[in-house]
Design a protein around this nucleic acid. Structure first.
Length: 560
RNA sequence: UGGCCUAUGGUGUAAUUGGUAACACAGCUGAUUUUGGUUCAGUCGUUCAAGGUUCGAGUCCUUGUAGGCCAACCA
């Protein structure tokens, strides 16, 4: 589907497997979210990796919810996750749940007990943790490690039936208390949780731990390549150990491989931290347009295409990374430049009176919708004697580099006339309240006259005062002032919150925007890309700023 | 004072598996432009260090150095 591109290391692994004789039609992948939060841009990378592999090899990809912890998980998250994956444009083969496999997992656990490879430990978690040792010191065996198979079976059944309180017992795999890998020191397979599960209700009183559930779920679904983030690398040994206990020759043996999670500058990508932003009211919710969640980006105006392009561009590897958010911004500009219609809106208005334009007269001028379009389409924009322009587009005096309106000089009004600033009106405090201009009657855009072809250096966007539609515009800036807010050892990431991440302004838009609907995207000419917010309605149109245009003028200003 | 992983321009990722270090973003110049946008042209700058093997090393070996991960009844 995509143009030729070099392979990432995961694709190299798959190619090697194929060369070694693995059948292509046995390839199968999965995206395995835990339904305890919303998906973010980091997950988008994983989604694009797994589903991208599915497209590349024409292999099925399951959406599997890792729902083994009813204390944290909710149906609402399941729904949000499905919506986000769908919106990104991917189709899963099957919708699966680890909880679908609880019975199979339980049966396998019984077998492990019977083979003497699992036992019930009746100590509390602190004691078990102490006995685990440290990375440099081996652990010591639990006094319950050598319980009889009969006793283990009986206790485990009791755990399952709800005979015990939470924490009374756990089922542990009997592996190696002195392994250099802490995860192999008799890991817990089941704990008692007397909680209702969003799918299995009160059927179970015991729930499997990640390591026991995940690999076996892969195996049940016959996932060939189980891809996860690097922090699970030490789990691989355990993944393989558990698989050894249930694997049968004729089946595909699932293979776990790990890649580095993607970090984005000026934000955080961790469900726990994002949850804090939501719970502490820093943002209005998981889909606040400042959030790096997929739902937040969507509401901000990011397109699925731009996010997929981004994921594709940053690639997949194993090293630590901090991707500059400017790359994400590039991806959305590139996409919206092609798709978004150009319109005019003024966000910080100052009134211009065209003194030689007849009072009461109005004209509906033709305006291009998008110069990037293959076949140009047009709309009408009203012009009249009084218009708004941006306050920063006028200066009484300025040097040659200022290509905008200044006293005694001319500027082109986009799609309209050339005007010349003659004088200003100020209030008692010296603020400019009106700019009086004259216009060149012959200079109307597209009229074909000699005057209309005149080259003037600056072109401004504008809105007719009488026809302007008042709109609310939410101007967003990065949520954090620091490139890596959670990268400081002695500082909490919350200390770097940008207090000016949201500015709400009243703007004046051309009347064609009156009928705009939530989700629609526009380029406000010379300002940036904006989309109609989900809270927008006929009575109050609300725009979110997606991203500004590249602004070389602003860069020049910054240098001073 | 253990085990494992990683190291390529400012950032991210490649390099036909030992054969001219490249692509994108960002930066900087300039051209075009009725958006200081877009587009176009150009430019800046890279293999963690030290040894070794080799005609030849980003790639292989050795030793360092730096960063990351591992001691939840979380995933």
């Amino acid at each position: 589907m995509s143009e030729e591109r070099s392979l990432n290391f995961i694709e190299h692994i798959i190619e090697d497997d194929l060369k070694a004789g693995f059948q292509k039609n046995k390839l199968r992948f999965r995206f395995p979210p835990e339904p305890n939060g919303y998906l973010h841009i980091g997950h988008a990378s994983s989604i694009c990796l797994n589903f991208g592999l599915g497209e590349r090899y024409d292999a099925p990809v399951n959406l599997r919810f890792d729902d083994t912890n009813p204390a944290k998980e909710e149906q609402a998250y399941v729904d949000a996750i499905k919506r986000d994956v769908e919106w990104l444009g991917f189709e899963w083969e099957k919708e699966c749940y680890a909880s679908d496999y609880f019975q199979q997992l339980y049966d396998w656990a019984i077998n492990l007990i019977k083979k003497g490879k699992a036992y019930v430990d009746s100590q509390d978690s602190e004691t078990i943790a102490e006995q685990k040792g440290t990375p440099t010191k081996p652990g010591t065996p639990s006094p319950y490690r050598d319980r009889s198979i009969e006793e283990n079976l009986e206790l485990f059944e009791g755990m399952k039936n709800g005979d015990f309180k939470e924490g009374a017992h756990v089922l542990r795999a009997k592996i190696d208390m002195s392994s250099t890998n802490m995860l192999m020191r008799d890991p817990v397979m089941y704990r008692i949780l007397n909680k209702s599960h969003h799918r299995t209700g009160n059927d179970w009183h015991i729930y499997p731990m990640y390591d026991w559930a995940h690999g076996e779920s892969d195996y049940i679904e016959q996932v060939s390549h189980s891809l996860c983030t690097l922090e699970f690398l030490p789990h691989r040994e355990l993944y393989d150990w558990f698989l050894d206990q249930v694997y049968e020759e004729q089946n595909v043996r699932s293979k776990q491989r790990e890649f580095a999670r993607r970090n984005l500058s000026h934000t955080v990508v961790s469900k726990r931290k994002l949850l804090r932003l939501v719970e502490e009211g820093v943002v209005t919710g998981w889909d606040d347009p400042r959030m790096p969640t997929i739902s937040g980006l969507r509401r901000r105006g990011y397109t699925a295409e731009s996010i997929r392009k981004f994921a594709d561009t940053i690639g997949i590897a194993k090293r630590e990374n901090l991707i500059d958010v400017s790359l994400l911004e590039f991806c959305i500009r590139e996409d919206l430049n092609k798709k978004a219609n150009r319109v005019m809106a003024v966000l910080d208005p100052v009134k211009v009176v065209i003194t030689n334009y007849p009072e009461g007269q109005e004209e509906w001028l033709e305006a291009e919708n998008n110069p990037e379009e293959e076949e140009m389409t047009y709309r009408k924009v009203p012009f009249s004697r009084e218009i708004y322009i941006e306050r920063e587009d006028f200066r009484e005096e300025a040097n040659r580099k200022f290509f905008r309106l200044k006293l005694g000089k001319e500027v082109r009004l986009k799609n309209a006339y050339i005007i010349k600033a003659e004088s200003v009106v100020k209030d008692d405090e010296g603020n400019i309240t009106e700019i009086h201009c004259t216009y060149d009657e012959e200079s109307r855009s597209g009229s074909g006259t000699e005057a209309s072809m005149r080259k003037v250096k600056g072109t401004l966007h504008w809105v007719s005062v009488a026809h302007a539609e008042e709109v609310e515009v939410r101007v967003y800036d990065r949520l954090f002032n620091d490139a890596e807010p959670d990268g400081h050892e002695n500082k909490d990431f919350m200390e770097f919150i940008n207090p000016e991440s949201l500015t709400v302004v009243k703007g004046y838009a051309e009347p064609s925007l009156k009928e705009s609907k939530p989700g629609e995207q526009y380029q406000f000419q010379r300002l940036g890309y904006f989309c109609v917010d989900t809270e927008s309605s006929k009575d109050g149109i609300i725009f979110n700023k997606t991203v500004g245009l590249r602004d070389t003028w602003a860069k020049l200003q910054d240098k001073k």
